[in-house]
Design a protein around this nucleic acid. Structure first.
Lengths: 197, 197
DNA sequence: AGGGTAACAGACTTAAAGGTCTGTTTTGCC
DNA sequence: GGCAAAACAGACCTTTAAGTCTGTTACCCT
């Protein structure tokens, strides 16, 4: 793999684990057995470097795990449950979990770097739009109740996911996941299409 | 106000706004026009200082805004909605919002300082226990459906609250709050006691 | 083969941050 | 008033981290 990509991959891992401000360039280079020269040959600054990670790796990561599995599918509600459950299972199996990458960064950069915040919010926006689209399609296809507010549901879904991932860092993630999915299913009972009596 | 408390109060504000690791002792002292000598007379280290803030100010803050308004009240579901709505309104009126203090710190310290993590998780635990108790009491008092899993509901509530507060940092907090409360009410329709037919 | 450029090594500079230490001021008390 | 202890000031030390710069190695192309 090219050096530049290796630096990005390792950077995302460490930034995720320790946070952006708490991870030094030296930490990353030590992990890779590389030198300052190598790093600053490929990137102008730590900030520009981080942005490149966000736009490449982070976006792809969120997309492939939370957006793509739902996009264009039939039966959005069950797909969403399955997708969220998969994502939580992955998190559960990490020995040490560090929360939801995207929301961690949003928390870390809020009020500090509006530039980076925009890139992060963009990813959230794509996710939200995709959920709304899926719900609307679900209405057309007879899976979703036509009276629900798709945008509000999408917001609520994202909120709860961000929150449960934050809670899961504490340890008892298996139980949390179970409870969460259980309540998500309950919630969806209100959202799904009901046969007219 | 005593110097020690002033240092704590200002510290919580700055830690909240800029994060713990991104706020220097000098930042806080500059804000207060105090010197290093004053600080280290009252506190042993930055860490011990932060812990004192968590145990005093942070706990009280969470307790008074999210726990106390629900504790021991009748009709828990409506109380929870009102309480959450109040808390979100406060956040909404901050020109610059920095998210939910408690979950911000949890995100920041996770994997870095298990000691501090415990103190933070303790606050979460108190919140959760209180919600569960309120829901159980609601069952006895005929406000809450006896078949619901109180612990799962509490977890789901905390998750969604943490999440919506994270989302609200981006700006359009008024709309987010509206959508969130709307969906929360929907969700509670499943939870509330239904008159036997 | 050799020259040129891309890719990298690593010492160095500069700034900031946590913490120490010595000295000074203020306060409470007899 | 005087004195001891609490409360604070601020220079200083040490470490760390971002970024620079000069020099060296590896690779490609004719």
């Amino acid at each position: 793999m090219a050096t530049m990509q290796r630096i990005q991959t390792t950077g995302l891992e460490l930034f995720y684990q320790k946070g952006y401000f708490n991870t030094s360039i030296d930490d990353i280079l030590k992990e890779l057995s590389l030198s300052k020269g190598a790093f600053y040959y490929h990137f102008q600054s730590k900030e520009e470097y981080f942005i490149s990670i966000v736009q490449n790796l982070l976006f792809r990561k969120v997309y492939s795990s939370l957006i793509e599995p739902i996009e264009g599918q039939e039966d959005p509600l069950n797909k969403i449950v399955a997708c969220f459950d998969d994502a939580l299972e992955t998190a559960e199996h990490n020995f040490l979990d560090y929360g939801f990458v995207l929301s961690n960064f949003i928390t870390e950069f809020n009020g500090k770097n509006p530039d980076i915040m925009n890139y992060l919010q963009d990813i959230l926006k794509v996710w939200e739009v995709n959920l709304v689209t899926a719900l609307q399609k679900g209405k057309s296809d007879g899976y979703v109740n036509r009276h629900i507010d798709s945008e509000a549901v999408a917001t609520y879904l994202i909120s709860s996911y961000i929150g449960i991932r934050t809670l899961m860092v504490e340890g008892n993630s298996k139980m949390l996941r179970y409870k969460y999915i259980q309540q998500l299913r309950q919630y969806f009972k209100l959202i799904e299409y009901k046969e007219p009596a």
